[in-house]
């Protein structure tokens, strides 16, 4: 009889009970989740039941994490995502959220660049914690990503990206995400990367400030290797602050565009 144990398919003898399964595979588990519900009483298993055995505080191994992601993703998706390298230029409101989304789906390697430190004013939208104020953003983000999925390789570049170093820092990426704040820096990165030897596409963002409708934030193709996320016009400034919801909408448009590009699909 086939059942799922911690997302892996296993064969058990018909008539096996939940606790017999636990005692056989992980007797030290202190949490038994049966078809999505934690159970305290034993019960018989039926074909295709899903059982998750957890020992509190214990991290899944790389193989278990892999099985977990494979089970959650459509077949064929996980292999492509795991083999990918994605660059993120800027670790602010956009970059930190993009990085977390990509780490959660198990992108194999992330290269994150930023020169800034975590400031109190960042916490209204950026994926940092109050006890990380003063740390370099790239270090704080690397730490946070490791708490989500320690099997994602995160390389950090703590410094300013320039026309000279951008293409070098991101030489090996399959897709680059532009997640800067200032418009001239956004244009600089697009010019430096799309003018470099890399053939990788770039997903940039423009127009995501304020609390206008989320539905005006779109993903569109804006060049042969350039994709643009945003409403194109909502600049950050007095009266139009950057806020977690809309910045998050744009960041996840970017992350989804990256995913689609990695899978060979057109983001638009």
């Amino acid at each position: 009889m086939r059942v799922f144990l911690n997302e892996n398919v296993i064969e058990v003898v018909p008539g096996t009970s939940l606790f017999q399964l636990r005692d056989q595979y992980r007797p030290d588990a202190d949490l038994v989740i049966f078809n999505g519900f934690p159970l305290k009483e034993d019960r018989p298993l039926a074909a295709d039941d899903r059982v998750v055995l957890i020992r509190r505080g214990e991290q899944p191994s790389a193989a278990e994490m892999e099985a977990l992601l494979m089970a959650r993703h459509t077949p064929g998706v996980h292999e492509k995502v795991r083999g990918a390298c994605v660059g993120i230029a800027g670790a602010g409101g956009l970059g930190s959220a993009v990085a977390i989304a990509l780490a959660r789906i198990g992108v194999g390697r992330l290269v994150v660049a930023d020169f800034d430190l975590v400031e109190p004013s960042n916490l209204n939208r950026q994926q940092y914690f109050i006890d990380q104020i003063g740390l370099p953003k790239v270090e704080a983000l690397q730490h946070n990503l490791a708490r989500i999925n320690p099997y994602v390789q995160v390389e950090i570049f703590f410094g300013r990206l320039t026309p000279d170093n951008s293409a070098i820092v991101f030489a090996e990426v399959d897709v680059l995400v532009e997640a800067f704040d200032l418009p001239d820096q956004k244009a600089m990165l697009v010019e430096a990367f799309l003018g470099s030897a890399s053939a990788a596409p770039l997903v940039a963002a423009s127009g995501l400030a304020g609390h206008g409708p989320a539905n005006t934030v779109v993903t569109r193709r804006a060049g042969s290797r350039l994709y643009l996320v945003g409403d194109g016009c909502s600049a950050a400034g007095p009266g139009a602050g950057l806020m977690a919801p809309r910045v998050g909408v744009a960041a996840h448009h970017q992350a989804n565009a990256v995913l689609r590009l990695l899978l060979g699909e057109e983001p638009e």
């Binding site: 800027g90 602010g92 409101g93 956009l94 970059g95 997640a179 800067f180 704040d181 200032l182 418009p183 001239d184 956004k186 244009a187 697009v190 940039a204 963002a205 423009s206 127009g207 995501l208 400030a209 804006a222 060049g223 350039l226 643009l228 945003g230 194109g232 016009c233 909502s234 600049a235 950050a236 400034g237 950057l242 910045v247």
Partner: peptide, 10 residues
């Protein structure tokens, strides 16, 4: 010609 004029925020 493709032209993108960026606005600030990220």
């Amino acid at each position: 010609l493709e032209l993108v004029q960026f606005v600030g925020g990220g």
